[in-house]
Amino acid sequence: MRAIVPILLTLSTPVIAQGSGPMPPLANRQLVDPAKEAQAMRLMHSLRCIQCQGQSIADSDAAMAATMRAEVRQQIAAGEKPEAIRSWMIDRYGEWVSFEPDMKGAGLLLWIAPFFIFLASIWLARGLFRRRA
């Protein structure tokens, strides 16, 4: 029985639950131009996989991530700018799909909050040092 369990586990639904379609060719194949591949790779590390929500599409094995990688590589190969591709993804899935929050709305608050905290801490520290002196 012990010997059969791993075999049964490999045949269980999570393994076959992704269907059996072909992977798009560019999902796991690098672009020929190393500079473009580096660009695509940087972008893929900052886009979130829709299927396995905590991972970037560069890290994920999910079918959806494969499709997203292929889309990124295909658009980079076609000369598209990485930020334009990020916007393309955001147009379809919302801000959520990007690991790098946009500098507007709640995203802007996220970017400038450290600056305000820094100013506030200087102001607090100033009072402390003055008293010491």
Partner: peptide, 15 residues
């Protein structure tokens, strides 16, 4: 038949 999920991606569909 969307065997490579490319249309699903264009639709903003997640599963």
């Amino acid at each position: 038949s969307d065997s490579e999920m490319l249309v699903q991606l264009k639709l903003g569909s997640s599963g």
